[in-house]
Amino acid sequence: MLTKMIKWDLRATYRKFTAVLVAFILLCMALPGVLFAVNPGAAQVYSMLTFSLGPTALYIVMIAFILQYYNTNLYGDEGYMTFTLPATGWRLLLSKMILALFWMLAAAVLIGLSVFTSIKIIESNSRLSSLFAPVWNFYRMDAAHWITFGALFLLGNIDCVLAAFFSITVSKLSVWRKGGIAMGFVTFVFIYIAQSLPALLWNGELRYVTETVSQSEAVQTMNMSVVCTVQHNLISLAVYAAVSIIVFWAAARLLDKTTSLK
């Protein structure tokens, strides 16, 4: 049942999502050429901006489409089909979750390529290289940090999508009457604040840096691994995992028990 649901979710979404990804690829391929033709002097800088700001736009568009699909497939007219399938709430939710992850990973691959291109552009220009040196230093970390950051990125995405799915489902509860959207927004913000608290409270390393190192030295020595230690990342991972499990359970239960199509 779950594989069939994923298959049909993919069939329903592949046109729109593929179009967005292809549009992003075309933009990244075409824009540097156009910029070079218009202004060769500033082409490098503008290309670098395209390869670094473009991914942000892509990420936002992908998330917006994922949430829109969840909303229309469950709570639009299509919901009259989806909710009459012989499937439990957790299957419906897991199917949407896997779909979201699939498209976000596809976007992540392109974003990775885009950032890599951006780095290469910077490296090819000595002025840009020296300008961005503090940024490179900031991200120079050992393998343990990168692994925990990778896991944090993946789990953070799962957690973010689940929190958004749960918030949409909460916003559809009939008890809110006209305040559903506001309640959904409040739910999302609440989840984010609640899950950020443990990591915010555990900031000893950061305090140590700001208290013991002078400001100029801090800028020179500032590194991601000091701001977010491996332990810090592991705490965040544990919190994200716990929140994801709780939110998944709650959303699946709401889908089962409180469906209310208009």
Binding site: G79, Y80, F83, T84, S174, K257, T258, T259, S260, L261
Partner: peptide
Amino acid sequence: IKILTGVLTG
């Protein structure tokens, strides 16, 4: 009808 088909609860 919605209640019988399970698309409406509460």
